[in-house]
């Protein structure tokens, strides 16, 4: 439903988005990741028809955003970065305006507004000036205006930025709920959010596409993915001695001592290709009678991968 090909945007000498191509299909929730200034917002602005690309094309439901911006915009619900809203209006007034501008027939407008309002839970502030609302409410009003016409494509630029943990949870629930029959593209720099709601992740840095795959693929890129971490309380013997006996386990390629303090020793064991070290390790621990505080296979840390993938990006 979204087709982006060789999309490029230059501002003078700066190339904000550099030859980015990807497609998004119905039912996908695409997490758009990248350091600040990487080109996430610029890409979203081009897809929504706010900015014209320098070169390349973007199509939304078959409508080219340059030659038929109105056609594309009809299909899109958009929450711009920072959720800008008309502060002198009430949420009700704003939603009426957006519903009308979106071409919802007068007879269906009230129902459409009610549905959007109940989805984001802003009933109690409907008649207050938007200027006087808290950041969380403003963000939810922004979300309400993006979904009032039940769009096929939802583009959300940092939808949970500045929300408290409960509100973040609500927004993620909302996104999950809506993802079945829509295309949702959201940008974020909260990595857990990607694992929590996205079916696919894209990382861009310095305007270039660096990664495109599932959040699980992304986690698997961490060298620590599949490694076993072990913490022993009341360590018997020195860290070196323990490390040697761990290295002796079949299938262990490398042992990395983590921190050792107050008689507690931690290690990370990297298995050789395809080897299973969890079983032999727990057997060894049992045999030696170690007091094991923690023993687990690591999933890989998204922030580690994120740093590796976007490394060399000096722009902040």
């Amino acid at each position: 439903m979204i087709e982006i090909q060789h999309l490029t945007k230059r501002f003078g000498a700066l190339t904000a988005v550099d030859d980015v191509s990807f497609d998004v299909a119905r039912g996908e929730v695409l997490g758009f990741l990248g350091p600040n200034g990487a080109g996430k917002s610029t890409t979203m602005k081009m897809v929504t028809g706010f900015l014209d690309p320098t070169s390349g094309t973007a199509k939304v439901c078959g409508h080219d955003v340059v030659s038929d911006p109105i056609g594309a915009q009809r299909k899109i619900g958009y929450l711009p970065e920072g959720a800008p809203l008309y502060g002198d209006m009430t949420p009700r007034g704003l939603l009426k305006f957006v519903a009308e501008a979106r071409g919802i027939p007068a007879s269906q407008r009230a129902a459409a507004i009610d549905r959007a309002v109940s989805r984001v839970h802003i009933e109690e502030v409907l008649n207050r000036r938007i200027d006087t609302l808290s950041k969380g409410y403003k963000r939810r009003v922004g979300l309400a205006q993006a979904i009032v016409h039940d769009p096929e494509v939802l583009i959300l630029d940092e939808p949970t930025d500045g929300l408290d943990p409960n509100q973040k949870h609500d927004v993620r629930e909302l996104i999950r709920e809506m993802s079945r029959d829509k295309v949702i593209v959201l940008s974020t720099h909260i990595l857990e959010e990607v694992a929590a709601v996205c079916s696919r992740a894209i990382i861009i840095a310095r305007g270039k596409l660096r990664f495109d795959g599932t959040p699980a693929d992304l986690q698997a890129m961490d060298p620590a993915h599949g490694a076993v971490s072990l913490t022993i309380g009341q360590a018997p013997g020195t860290t070196e001695a323990l490390g040697e006996s761990l290295s002796a386990i079949d299938g262990v390629a490398r042992v990395e001592p983590l921190d050792a303090a107050n008689g507690v020793a931690s290690f990370r064991l990297y298995p050789a290709e395809g080897a299973n070290v969890f079983g032999p390790l727990s057997a060894l621990a049992h045999e030696r009678g170690w007091e094991v505080d923690h023993l687990a296979v690591e999933d890989g840390r998204l922030d580690e991968v994120f740093r590796t993938v976007t490394a060399g990006d000096a722009r902040s």
Partner: peptide, 14 residues
């Protein structure tokens, strides 16, 4: 200055 231009100009309004 308030950024609402982005809201306005991404509505299906020419």
């Amino acid at each position: 200055s308030s950024g609402t231009i982005e809201l306005l100009m991404t509505l299906p309004i020419s």
